[in-house]
Design a binder for these strands. Structure first.
Lengths: 159, 159
DNA sequence: CCACCTGCTCAAGCTCCCTTGAGGTCAAGC
DNA sequence: GCTTGACCTCAAGGGAGCTTGAGCAGGTGG
């Protein structure tokens, strides 16, 4: 913020290949405010190394099933210019663990229903937990919509 | 198609409201081949009751995180005109339980990474399991892309 | 008799998360 | 000096899963 920034700044290509995402995706994340960049004299993006961790967090959030907007919310509590401190990280991590827990419980409940249905032959529309969930509003957080798009399409990491 | 069908056939509106989905969604599922319908003299769709179970299966599949195409694959092994037998159902159920298990393990692994990261302050790009998943190809089935869109938008159940 | 409700068929639109393409810039290499 | 490669900025496309709207038909009730 005030000292001379070390010039271990990364180009967008380097960032993309290291993070295992495509270049346009990186630009897209920046456009959406999930990451930021400086520009060099030629107008090219220059990313601090910390962006790699942010991209990892984005990927993890997507695996959990969060939208980019929700991930952006989490990232906004992390410093954009330096590595997160333990407590910075703990805040996000604990929140996400909560979401993860909720998701796990949800799926476990579904699994129980599935097991029960196999047992019962799913012959009862009224009793069956799978057919009659009825408790789908049992989420907790304001942003817990869980399942979201998270397929992987491009960005094959070179290996 | 050949015998006198019992007239416990449901209109699309009844199907939609009972299954908790929108009318266009029901039509969409039919268009995608997940369900089928007969037509009455006036050209309206007439659904057998068994469609309700199929819709429940669709909803469950979406919760698991399957695409409609994958769900269609599962449904294609169920009879479209009658309730599934125990073994019909067991086949699908077991397959889905496998997917569910895989998904649960995935999320649990992610949770472990998250926990570890909180502990370590996520200061190591190289060691961190979250930052360095590297084992993302550890899925088993050919169709296990897990997370998919499954947000709920419309179709607010009235009760 | 006519409004109304339910249903029909397109066709277009929307959200999310990007990808793809067109056309231009800048620095380096032959 | 010209090509190549990485980068830039729009702008459009794409797929999944629907929703929304336009325009029309048919049965029902007041």
């Amino acid at each position: 913020m005030l000292g001379p920034v070390p010039d271990d700044l990364l180009s967008i290509g380097a960032v993309a290949s290291r993070a295992g995402v495509s270049v346009p995706a990186v630009r897209y994340y920046e456009e959406r405010g999930l990451i930021t960049s400086a520009r060099d004299a030629g107008g090219r993006r220059r990313f601090p190394r910390s962006v790699l961790r942010r991209l990892a967090v984005i990927a993890a959030g997507q695996r959990i099933g969060l939208s980019l907007a929700e991930i952006a919310g989490a990232l906004s509590s992390l410093p954009s210019d330096r590595a997160p401190s333990t407590s910075d990280w703990a805040r996000v991590g604990e929140r996400w663990q909560g979401l993860l827990d909720a998701r796990l419980r949800e799926l476990q409940a579904l699994q129980s229903s599935l097991t029960a249905c196999i047992g019962c032959g799913c012959l009862s529309l009224e009793r069956c937990g799978l057919v009659n969930p009825a408790d789908e509003a049992a989420a907790e957080g304001p942003g817990s919509r869980w399942l979201r798009g998270a397929r992987r399409t491009a960005a094959s990491p070179d290996g």
